[in-house]
Design a protein around this nucleic acid. Structure first.
Length: 480
RNA sequence: CGGGGAGUAGCGCAGCUUGGUUAGCGCGCCUGCUUUGGGAGCAGGAGGUCGCGGGUUCGAAUCCCGCCUCCCCGACCA
């Protein structure tokens, strides 16, 4: 365990996971629940989730999906209908065997995901090609029993959104999978300022029961990969298992092609590990609960006018659409507040004291650079939206530059091991799962995805030297 | 599940080896006064089933046995 004085947090370079744990707790994003692996999302963390999920919800609706809600409990027998699916999830299921004071006739599984219940219902609702496509999303909690929990990254219960669609053809279902991947990328890059590589999973990394899985992979500041969201083309696997069929225009009975896609509270963990530094969290303005915090400074006698000016400035900022918070606490010092709001990742701090009032100005402080800029009061709110936009862009650019600086092509296992020790490796793979296994055993890294933007290229498998599949290099990394 | 570490006040810890007053320290908390431009000061105060159960003993936070929980590192996962 790394040492830390009671005021600071363990530096990233000393112990990244200690840094992460301390930060989540100290910034009051979340706390551990009484049951191992469970998490309480505190108001500050939940607000981030609201901002993130609000944007995603808007995009989901804008692409023609409707929200609904399906039950938490799934009859165990239903889950068993899709063989690969059960097999994939069985080690992490929570099962209720006793309820209402009696043993249940049939155990109930607490949903680890809802393909099965939703499939069951779709089978009931879909009769004709005229009923298609069905495009439904739900916001829900799911439970996957975790052996090694981490707040936000891997908790036994987590919040997410799961979209489930049914289509007449493979082309439509695959296109749907890509629509979802696109809006996930828009949220990750445009709001979380987290650059992602989007592409197919290899068969061994695919979702249990899927024909294709597309994931978004981001690099954390310790060089490891985080899967930020996934989107699946399920083929007719679930349609066959649950009887999701329609009669076509030609009168022929056919199986639907389905898709599913999800983004979870893990994204918050990604934000923390993409942007945070040794002083604490750094939040992208678009998902920051407070984009600006005003810290009034002054002795008791002179605090009145300062507070009044702070409130007036805040009102002005609110009018320009900025989320602003005035820290009116009088029992902690100004210096304490500076440190605390830096720890909690507020993009811009405004210091306002008697000296500023006299000069008709305020001091604007940037969380990323620490730069303090005295500005005439009138300019503070006028320039704030642009300042926040620039901050958002700077965060994204910094994260992308970091990823590029920690990525390398690898044509041998040694090169792959070296690159993935600190970041990503781009390498060829033949497609044999045995080679993936070899690579993981030798380097700890796994293929994260086949980046859809990767340049077309051919070569030899980094593990066996055989001819490469996929027509391009895959990204490898050590995964969270 | 395997390996390592830890359970003592809200948080972080000392005390345990070598049993013995009323279990300490820092931070935080409460009250008052002074303070406030980078984690304020002084004074006073509150706060403890020493993880749980059993045992040894005149006497256990301390020694012995059993159990539970949490954290970290490895194999599966959004």
């Amino acid at each position: 365990m790394a040492k830390t004085n009671e005021r600071g947090i363990t530096p990233q370079s000393e112990d990244f996971s200690a840094w992460y744990n301390e930060l989540v707790l100290r910034a009051e994003l979340a706390d551990r629940g009484p049951v191992r692996g469970t998490m309480v999302i505190r108001p500050y963390g939940y607000r981030i989730w609201e901002l993130l999920s609000g944007e995603l919800d808007r995009l989901i609706k804008a692409t023609g999906h409707e929200n609904a809600y399906f039950p938490l409990f799934i009859p165990e027998s239903h889950l068993r209908r899709e063989a690969e699916h059960v097999e994939g999830f069985s080690p992490e299921l929570a099962i209720v065997t006793h309820a209402g004071g009696e043993d249940l006739e049939e155990p109930l599984v607490v949903r680890p995901t809802s393909e099965t219940v939703i499939g069951e219902m779709y089978a009931r609702w879909i009769d004709s090609y005229r009923d298609l496509p069905v495009k439904i999303n739900q916001w829900a909690n799911v439970v996957r029993w975790e052996l090694r929990p981490r707040l936000f990254l891997r908790t036994t219960e987590f919040l997410w959104q799961e979209g489930h669609t049914a289509h007449a053809t493979e082309e439509e279902a695959v296109a749907e999978m890509m629509v979802a991947a696109d809006f996930y990328q828009a949220v990750a890059e445009g709001f979380a300022a987290m650059p992602v590589l989007v592409g197919d999973k290899t068969p061994s990394e695919r979702f249990a029961g899927a024909v294709r899985t597309v994931s978004l992979e981001a690099m954390m500041r310790d060089g490891r990969a985080l899967q930020a969201a996934t989107s699946h083309y399920l083929g007719t696997n679930f349609a066959r298992a649950f009887g999701i069929e329609y009669t076509g225009i030609d009168g022929v009975r056919a199986l639907c092609h389905t898709s599913s896609w999800g983004m979870s509270t893990r994204m918050i963990g990604g934000v923390i590990m993409t942007h945070g530094d040794d002083r604490g969290l750094v939040l992208p303005p678009r998902i920051a609960p407070h984009q600006v915090v005003v810290v009034p400074i002054g002795r008791e006698g002179e605090l009145g006018p300062v507070m009044a000016a702070a409130e007036a400035l805040a009102a002005e900022l609110t009018r320009t659409g900025v989320r602003v918070h005035v820290d009116t606490r009088t029992h902690v010092s100004a210096g304490f507040k500076f440190n605390e709001w830096e720890l909690r990742g507020v993009p811009v701090r405004i210091e306002l004291g008697p000296r500023d009032l006299a000069a008709g100005s305020a001091v604007v402080v940037d969380r990323l650079t620490g730069t303090k800029t005295p500005l005439p009061m009138a300019e503070v709110s006028a320039t704030m939206p642009a300042r926040l936009d620039a901050f958002q862009t700077a965060l994204f650019d910094r994260a992308r530059d970091f990823r590029e600086a920690h990525s390398a092509t690898a044509d041998t296992l040694d090169e792959l091991a070296e690159a993935t020790a600190t970041g990503f490796a781009w390498a060829f793979l033949c497609g044999d799962p045995a080679c993936e296994k070899t690579i993981q055993e030798r380097t700890g890294a796994t293929p994260r995805c086949v980046p859809r933007d990767g340049a077309a290229e051919t070569g030899r498998c980094v593990a066996c030297g055989g001819p490469a599949s996929y027509g391009r290099r895959l990204v490898f990394g050590r995964a969270y």
